[in-house]
Design a protein around this nucleic acid. Structure first.
Lengths: 332, 332
DNA sequence: CTGAAAGCGCTAACAG
DNA sequence: CTGTTAGCGCTTTCAG
C-alpha cells in the first residue's frame, strides 16, 4: 500500500500538499493537483482507513450482536442492516451471542472501540436474567445502541420492535371470523418475550370470543414434528392453529394433511414464516410476515442518524414495524 | 474513554511508563506497576484498538463476503467462521454481495484496509462472468483470501470445498442399491458450479446403473412447489428423488404424500437440507449434510494460520470437507 | 527504574 | 500556493 509519504517523496512536495491535492483543497495549484492525482492513480493510492479512524475518532463501522444467525428472522434483519448501512458507507461487524449472556458481554467488549455504535437483539439468557449492566456501561460511554425485536424496555436507547401482540391477536381474530371454534396455539418460544407477547395476543382474542385456549408448548430440545403429530392426533376437535415460531405452522399443515384432514376445510393454520419456508407446507402456509428487512433497515437508519447528528442529542425513539398477514392456501 | 496520556498525567509519570506498566514490562518498578494498574482499573482503561491497529498494521479483523445470507448453508458457514475466529480474538466484518459482481467488488473495496484477510464465496454473477480481477488485485497486495464452496479453481489462494460430486453420486447409488429404477434429479441451482457438480454426480451413478436420467430444473423465479407437484403428477413412475437444493427435497416428500404415494415405500427422497428443515417433511427427509460449520471453521483456521505465520509463506491448500448422508424416514 | 522521542498514516491550523 | 508542525493513542528504542 502506497502512503502519502511515498507519493510526496516521489513528487518532491510535502505530505500535506499531497493530502490537500487529493482532497481537492482550493489551496493547491491546478498543475500540482494534476501531478499528484496522476501519480496516486498510477500507484492505486487508497487512504489508510485505520489512520483516518484514529484521526477522526470514528470507525464507520456498526457492531451487530445477534443471538442466533441460523434463525431465519434474525439473519434477515442482519441482511436489512447490512444493506442500509452499506448505503451510507458503513461496515458491519457481526458477533453471535448464541443466546448466551457471557458471549454477549464478550461481544460487547470485543467490538467496543472498533465500532461507532451497536445494533442488537437480546440473547435468551440475558432476557431471563435481566442483566443489562454491559449495555448501560456502553451507553454511558457514549456508544449508542439500537435494540430490535427482543429489547429491554427499561433501557434508555432507540428500539425497533414488532407488534407481536397485535399480530397474533389479529390472526386469531381472523380464524374466529372464519367460524373456527377450537383454535390451538403452538409455540417453542416460551421463554422469549416475543413468544409471551404472541401468546397473549392469541389469548386475548380467544378470551373475547368466549372460547377456551388450547396450548401446545414445545421445548427446544424436543422433537417438534413428533409433538405436533401427536398433539393433532389427540385433539381431533382442533379446527384452527396459530403457530408462534417459524416451523410449527409448516409442520402443522403437513401433519394435518397426513391425518387425512383437509386444510383449510377441516383445519386452518396461520404461522410466522418467511415466504420461502411457507413453500414447505402443502397447501402453502398463510403467514404473519414480520418484515425483517425493514426492521434491520430501520435500526440501521436510526443508529446512523444518531451517529451523524452527533451534535444534537435527540431523545430515544421506539419504532414499531407492523406485521402483515399474507394469505395463502392454509386459510380461507 | 481514558487514554494513557490522562493516566500518566494523573500519576505524574510519563506515558511510556504507564504503557510499560500495563504491559507488565520488567523495566518498571513493582510499586509503580501497582499504582498504574489500580488507576487503570478504576477508570476502566481499555487500549484504543484503532491506535493499536495503526501501530501494528494489523486489524485482527476478517472480511467475509457471502452471496446470500438468507441461504441457510451460507449463514451456517458464517456461524462457523465467526465462532472459530472469535476463539482467536478476531472480529468478522460481513458484506453481502447479493449474487452480484458489482456488489462483490464494492465489498472488497469497502473492506480492504479494514481487514487482514478475506473469507468468501463467489457470487453467482461472478461465476457466470468469470471475472476474478478484484481478487487477483487483493492477493497481489498481500491480503490473503480463503474461498469456500463456490471457488475459482484457477486462483492462487486457499480453498475449502465440499465433495458435491461424490455426495450426489453416493446418494444416488444408495437409492439404486435400494432397487429404485426411476430416479429423478430436482434442482434450482442450475447456474452454480456446485449445482452442476451435483448433477454430474447423479448422472454418473445413473449412467453406471444403465438407467435414464430424469431431470427437473426449476428457475429461481418459478413456483417451486407447483413445479414439483406437477412433475410428480406427470411422472408417476418416478420412485426416487435426489434434490440438489435445500427446499426441493422437502417439497418432494410432502408432494408425494399428497398424491397418496407412500414415502419411502413408493418413492424414496434424498435432499440437501439442514436438520431443522428436514423436520418440515413428513416423514422426515434423509439428507446430505454439508457440515457447513466445519467449512466455516476450516476456512477461518486456514486464514488465521496464514495471517499469524506471516513470515513463512506456505503454499496454498485446498481442504475438502466430506458430506455425510443422514438417514431419516424418507428412505430406507 | 523512568522518560524523551520517534513513528504508524493522516488531517488541519498556522506560517511563510 | 506550499510547507512545517502538532496531534490522534499507542509501542518501542534509546538515553539518562
Amino acid at each position: 500500500m502506497v502512503t502519502l509519504k511515498q507519493l510526496a517523496k516521489e513528487l518532491n512536495v510535502s505530505i500535506s500538499t499531497v493530502s490537500k491535492a487529493l482532497n481537492n483543497s482550493e489551496e493547491i495549484g491546478e498543475e500540482t493537483v494534476k501531478r499528484v492525482k496522476e501519480l496516486a492513480e498510477l500507484y492505486n493510492y487508497k487512504p489508510n482507513k485505520v489512520a483516518l479512524s484514529l484521526k477522526s475518532n470514528r470507525t464507520k463501522t456498526i457492531g451487530v450482536i445477534i443471538p442466533d444467525i441460523l434463525n431465519h428472522f434474525l439473519s434477515k434483519v442482519l441482511f436489512g442492516i447490512e444493506r442500509e448501512a452499506s448505503k451510507y458507507g458503513y461496515n458491519i461487524m457481526t458477533c453471535i451471542s448464541n443466546e448466551s449472556l457471557d458471549k454477549e458481554k464478550e461481544a460487547i467488549n470485543l467490538l467496543t472501540g472498533s465500532v461507532d455504535g451497536f445494533i442488537l437483539s437480546l440473547s435468551e439468557e440475558t432476557q431471563l436474567k435481566d442483566d443489562m449492566e454491559h449495555f448501560k456501561k456502553t451507553i454511558i460511554q457514549k456508544t449508542p445502541i439500537v435494540m430490535f425485536d427482543r429489547v429491554a424496555h427499561d433501557l434508555l436507547c432507540d428500539k425497533v420492535i414488532v407488534d407481536d401482540f397485535d399480530a397474533t391477536y389479529n390472526a386469531t381474530m381472523n380464524l374466529i371470523a372464519d367460524n373456527r371454534k377450537h383454535i390451538a396455539f403452538i409455540t417453542n418460544l416460551d421463554n422469549l418475550s416475543v413468544g409471551k407477547l404472541r401468546e397473549r395476543g392469541y389469548a386475548k382474542a380467544i378470551f373475547e370470543s368466549g372460547s377456551e385456549p388450547i396450548l401446545l408448548k414445545i421445548k427446544k430440545k424436543e422433537d417438534q414434528q413428533k409433538k405436533i403429530l401427536s398433539f393433532l392426533k389427540k385433539n381431533k376437535h382442533v379446527d384452527g392453529v396459530i403457530a408462534a415460531d417459524s416451523s410449527s405452522g409448516i409442520i402443522a399443515v403437513n401433519a394435518a394433511m397426513q391425518y387425512g384432514l383437509k386444510v383449510p376445510k377441516n383445519i386452518s393454520v396461520i404461522g410466522f414464516a418467511s415466504k420461502a419456508d411457507s413453500n414447505h407446507a402443502i397447501p402453502k402456509l398463510t403467514t404473519i410476515r414480520q418484515h425483517a428487512k425493514d426492521i434491520g433497515a430501520n435500526a440501521a437508519k436510526m443508529l446512523i442518524n444518531r451517529l451523524e447528528n452527533n451534535g444534537v442529542q435527540e431523545d430515544v425513539k421506539t419504532i414499531i414495524v407492523k406485521t402483515s398477514l399474507v394469505q395463502a392456501k392454509s386459510t380461507r
